[in-house]
Amino acid sequence: MGILEVKNVGKRFGGLQALGDVNLSIAENTVHAIIGPNGAGKSTLLNCLVGKLIPDTGSVMFDGQSVLGRKPFEINQMGISRVFQTPEIFGDLTVLENMMIPCFAKRDGSFEMNAIGSVMGQKDIIERAEQMLEEMNMADKRGMNSASMSRGDKRRLEIGMCLSQEPRLLLLDEPTAGMARADTNNTIDLLKQIKEERDITIAIIEHDMHVVFSLSERITVLAQGTPLVEDTPDNIKGHPKVREAYLGESADQ
């Protein structure tokens, strides 16, 4: 049994069968990549896991519990954190404040009414947030307005915010999309470091094969809403079906 079990999941948008019959099992403490051509249904699948979309059919079990019908915040509280395709952070808040919010969510749950005490009096939260910024190598940016950072730094902050919740499963949707090479390498290094240092399961959607092959232990290839194959990176590289459906010209190079 994997930590995440997706069984027979289907999702239709009007006339379009975005997901056909997806079965996927992600083992605990592995990095599992999901690849596939544009429009294959990767983001749709991920949205079904975090409560943004509700699949028409099938089941999604996380650690033995169904996530279907739960709201995004409830699923997050179960231990699934998500990184978005374009970094989603709190642009109007400082870097430190950004980091404090998931710390509050971790400590107090989904709602806590403390309207009188001062934020600055929350010593444990500030300490934890600062420690997390330290780990992300962002301590020097703590007072900065987060909107003014580079895309790579925003991504780094977003990943740090997710990690501060100590999730058991981290989902990343094209974390390096639209990034300059330096930022991409930065992000890969960060993810590698996370994988080495933490007990965490990571599912990553990615187009950049360099990223995929340097990080993942298992790869699922999705095409037209159904998984084509699932295997180790080495086997995927040479798989004829995959070359045909996805890697195509890039494999010939």
Partner: peptide, 17 residues
Amino acid sequence: RAIKSNQQRLNYTGLNT
């Protein structure tokens, strides 16, 4: 203030807005 800034991020950070 976080709600004003990015409600989506807040929801996916386990907070019920």
